[in-house]
Nucleic acid binder design. Structure first.
Length: 911
RNA sequence: GGGCGAUUGGCGCAGCGGCUAGCGCACUUCGUUCACACCGAAGGGGUCGUAGGUUCGAUUCCUACAUCGCCCACCA
């Protein structure tokens, strides 16, 4: 307990032998029993620190990357808690999305059929057949609600292994505050958010050509695209001019020839100027198409003149739109060629070729077309191989096609420049750690080319809370959606019925029909700040926690999770969702390759934790700065383990000394007071001075989210404290020297104050070992993790203006004495009968102040003579300088202490 | 093609317009079991990717290049 000027400790019996084993189990249970990390929620926003924790994908696999970034966040949480904040640190589970959908399908052998109604007695055909691949035809159909229930059931199992890991790692999460992204609250927030967007005109639907994945048969958004290299062939095709001559185009997609609507060249291209305004006929099909000019046509690409099809790529779409071209679509949603012969193909020969390719995949259709072209002589030369970059859905393995469909969009600045600027301003307002990551945000927002497509033609996910009226003639009136009242949310339109309608009217003339699309998973994830803070629930939590303080996340999802969250909060709450964001780096394997499942180099987090302990693994993570990639390095974990053990040993030692009186009798008093007023010796005051500086610097670093720098400062001083200070004051603290009672108390007090401070300084990093040593000192006073973060001012006032350089010079003097023995290859216990130390005058004064401690620690039995450094000594020490003053200053700054004449005694006799 | 980051002893990383470029691991030598062998002490080892420039002075700032990683754009 800290009071003004002193710290009272309740000492508990110390173990004979210390170790880090067992600490994790011991303290995780205590923290759980005592609800050490529970959010209190009884103070206002300024006293709360709230964290928008990333919900891990529960169907995904655990790997050390998880440990890495979640440790960084936990360090922040623990630090802020010690700073007095009521820390709101929830945990979410992401079970909304394709990976979970697939996992549920395979695990239970089920699939969603939105035409089915909820069946409360539904039983999946089997359960828990990991690895057994179920043929899609054998999956049993169930309603979406039944599927979601199975998903929640399975997620609960998956979650457990994540939770076990987080607990084991010591994450100070408040487990009472957890959520699922497919859970009821998340669905309600996502649907309510969407309806509010709709009311304000920010969400809209549109029938338009868009990127489409033929495997998953869904539209995909710009944020889900991935460019990949894709092999192909250039085919040179002859189109026929009216004068009987040909014009040649090059294409990698000859199978789209039936969908050709125009040939297009650059308006400045002399080669084709004469052709603009004329028509040509297509090879094989003989369809007449115009030759048109458009500035987007590049003269040096291919033949300089392109075939515009509806639709081969996004350029086709812009030509089609700008030049008001007809739509001649031949691709079906499953990626196969439409089976109906299009009405624009009129020649019998063309119809026959089309019939051969209908129903085929684009790949097979291409073969048909190429063979036919070769036969007709309209393919010039052999196709030449090429590699091009093509858009893929990030989870797909076939190139995206362009399909016209009705979709829901949300304004995100992709089309509205004013909104785009507002979102850029939000990005400028947000504090990125590290700062250079904001460039990625700006790049992304600047490069948006469309609004956010939020509808997906999938079955598992949060449904759009909408129905549409069915007209008398059976047609669906998409322009006047039926909207539920907010108090009904969440709803599923495929099982719930709009107000004023009855179930019997579903899909009937004059009735209603459900919107069967679901929302993009990011449409839900983008609202995690609103989900965790209970937005619009009027239970008081929102006001205490929103806008949040921190969003930790991966750098790979800046364009998705981070950006979409800012969009939603900007539109809904007119605020940034959080003030700061922490971006973690990647984990690289020892060969500097990014760890990923596909590379097969993933390390399961349990392994290093079992081997080195949670504190050690956390130490490894904590050594890496935010945004910097880290190598998986067990060597670093060993160092963490060593540090943890050193903390135990040093604390045990110092506390044991403190309990012995001058005659080595154990003092059984369990309570001691480390009164700052008792720090009377200059060396002890110097330690307090340095501690104060260390706290000040570490605190500043942590406030800037630089946990690695703070750790390095604390750790460096801790080792100096052990290797130099403890060694120097050992004997004085024992009272075995001829020092005064007060000098002994001063040493014991300083050791106590120092170790008490180290326990707290290391607590965010090494929560288990620090909790252990804290309880040796402060049993019955609660957790170190709710203890106050050390105050630099407290230790500074103890120093009485003693400079911390006194500690450095005393340490350097001790090192000089050790060097004598090390070079003489004798034991450190060998006495030095007499010695001369050379140092600058300032250092001599400081050594004089701690001379008896130095003599004791160095086993100097006779005189220590202090003398000035000579010019040759500076040179010998490698110093350079033009003036004597400069050399003196350099020697003082580097604590140069040399030894001259010395007489060694007899080494102690070995037993 | 545009951009971001990295490049420092064998390895993993700090650092910074000038202090003798630090730390840990590994290495060498020595010691020790009375806090700690899950230990201690002392020591060796780097012309800071390359080439220019700014400066009295560059590992640090600027320019170009190289290598590695990543983001964005690129389908005729």
């Amino acid at each position: 307990m800290t009071t003004d000027g002193n710290i009272t400790a309740n000492l508990t019996p110390l173990p004979d032998k210390v170790g880090v084993e067992g600490l994790e189990d011991k303290w995780t249970h205590t923290w759980d029993d005592e609800q050490t990390f529970a959010f209190q929620g009884d103070r206002d926003r300024t006293s709360v620190y709230s964290i928008d924790t990333p919900p891990p994908t529960v169907s995904g696999h655990l790997h050390v990357g998880h440990v890495f970034s979640y440790t960084h966040t936990d360090i922040v949480a623990r630090y802020k808690r010690m700073c007095g904040y009521d820390v709101f640190y929830p945990m979410g589970w992401d079970d909304n999305g394709l990976p979970t959908e697939r996992r549920v399908q395979n695990y239970y052998g089920v699939r969603v059929d939105t035409s089915l109604k909820y069946n409360p007695d539904f039983k999946p055909p089997f359960e828990g057949t990991e690895g057994k691949k179920v043929n899609a035809r054998d999956q049993v159909a169930c309603s979406r609600q039944n599927f979601i229930e199975l998903c929640e059931k399975l997620s609960a199992q998956d979650e457990q292994q994540f939770k076990d890991l987080w607990v084991r790692l010591g994450l100070s999460v408040d487990w009472k505050n957890s959520y699922h992204t497919i859970g009821k609250r998340a669905r309600r927030v996502a649907q309510k958010g969407f309806l509010r967007n709709l009311q304000r005109g920010e969400a809209y639907q549109k029938e338009a050509p868009g990127l489409w994945d033929v495997t998953f048969q869904t539209a995909v958004a710009q944020a889900e695209l991935e460019s990949r290299e894709y092999p192909g062939f250039y085919h040179k095709l002859a189109f026929h001019k009216t004068d009987g001559t040909d014009v040649y185009i090059e294409t990698t997609r000859p199978e789209l020839l039936p969908a050709c609507v125009a040939l297009i060249a650059n308006p400045n291209d002399e080669r084709y100027k004469d052709l603009f305004g004329t028509t040509v006929t297509s090879p094989l099909f003989g369809v007449e198409v115009p030759v048109l000019a458009h500035p987007a046509a590049e003269m040096d690409k291919g033949a300089g003149i392109a075939m515009c099809c509806t639709f081969g790529d996004v350029t086709d779409v812009s030509w089609w739109r700008d030049l008001h071209l007809p739509t001649r679509s031949i691709l079906m949603r499953n990626g196969r060629i439409n089976t109906e012969i299009p009405e624009w193909i009129t020649s019998p020969q063309g119809q026959e070729i089309y019939a051969q390719m209908s129903g085929k995949t684009t790949f097979s259709a291409r073969t048909v077309i190429v063979d036919a072209l070769q036969e007709s002589g309209e393919l010039i030369g052999e196709p030449s191989a090429t590699t091009r970059m093509t858009n893929f859905y990030e989870k797909g393995d076939k190139p995206l096609e362009i399909i016209t469909s009705r979709q829901w969009y949300l304004h995100n600045g992709g089309t509205d420049l004013k909104l785009r600027q507002e979102l850029l301003n939000r990005g400028a307002e947000l504090k990125f750690h590290p700062d250079f990551m904001r460039v990625r945000y700006n790049n992304w927002v600047d490069g948006l080319n469309s609004d956010w497509l939020i509808s997906r033609q999938r079955f598992f996910g949060v449904p759009f809370p909408l129905w549409y009226p069915v007209q008398e003639n059976g047609e669906i009136d998409y322009d006047h959606p039926l909207i539920p009242t907010e108090d009904r949310l969440p709803i599923d339109p495929t099982s719930d019925v709009p107000e004023g309608f009855a179930e019997e009217q579903r899909d009937q003339p004059c009735g209603f029909t459900a919107e069967t699309d679901i929302m993009d998973t990011w449409a839900t994830s983008s609202m995690t700040p609103q989900i965790v803070t209970h937005w619009d629930e009027h239970d008081g939590l929102f006001e205490k926690t929103f806008p949040m303080d921190l969003r930790p996340q991966g750098q790979d999802i800046i364009r998705t999770w981070l950006f979409s969250s800012i969009v939603r909060a900007h539109l809904e709450n007119h605020a940034l969702p959080w003030s700061d964001t922490n971006l973690s780096g990647w984990i690289l394997d020892p060969d500097h390759k990014k760890m990923s499942k596909s590379k097969g180099n993933v390390v399961i987090p349990k392994e290093p934790i079992d081997k080195f302990g949670a504190d050690a693994v956390r130490y490894w993570a904590a050594c890496a700065k935010l945004g910097v990639d880290a190598t998986y390095d067990t060597g670093q974990m060993k160092i963490g383990r060593r540090l943890a053990i050193k903390l135990l040993n040093a604390t045990k030692f110092a506390l044991a000394i403190g309990r012995e009186d001058k005659n080595h009798h154990v003092n059984d008093s369990s309570q001691v007071t480390w009164d700052a007023a008792n720090v009377t010796e200059p060396l002890d005051q110097a330690v307090m001075a340095k501690l104060s500086t260390v706290i000040r610097e570490a605190t500043a670093a942590l406030d800037e989210y630089d946990h690695a720098h703070a750790l390095s400062i604390i750790e460096t001083f801790f080792w100096e404290f052990c290797d130099d200070y403890i060694e120097l004051v050992k004997d004085r603290a024992y009272g075995t020297t001829t020092c005064s009672e007060q000098a002994m108390i001063s040493a014991r007090t300083t050791l106590g104050l120092g170790l008490d401070a180290f326990a707290r300084l290391f607590a965010p990093y090494l929560p288990f070992v620090t909790e252990e040593i804290w309880h040796w000192m402060h049993d019955g006073e609660g957790s170190v993790h709710t203890a106050p973060w050390p105050s630099a001012d407290f230790y500074e006032q103890i120093t009485h203006s003693t400079a911390e350089s006194l500690l450095d010079n005393a340490g350097a003097a001790l090192a000089a004495l050790r060097k004598i023995k090390s070079e003489a290859k004798v034991s450190m216990k060998t006495p030095i009968l007499s010695v001369t130390l050379k140092a600058v005058p300032q250092a001599q004064r400081e050594i004089q102040e701690s001379l008896s401690d130095i003599a004791c620690a160095g086993k100097v039995t006779g005189d220590i003579t202090l003398t000035d450094l000579q010019h040759d000594d500076f040179i010998a020490a490698g110093l350079e300088g033009s003036t004597e003053e400069e050399l003196q200053q350099k020697a003082a700054d580097s604590f140069i202490i040399l030894t001259a004449e010395h007489v060694l005694g007899e080494p102690p006799v070995k037993k």
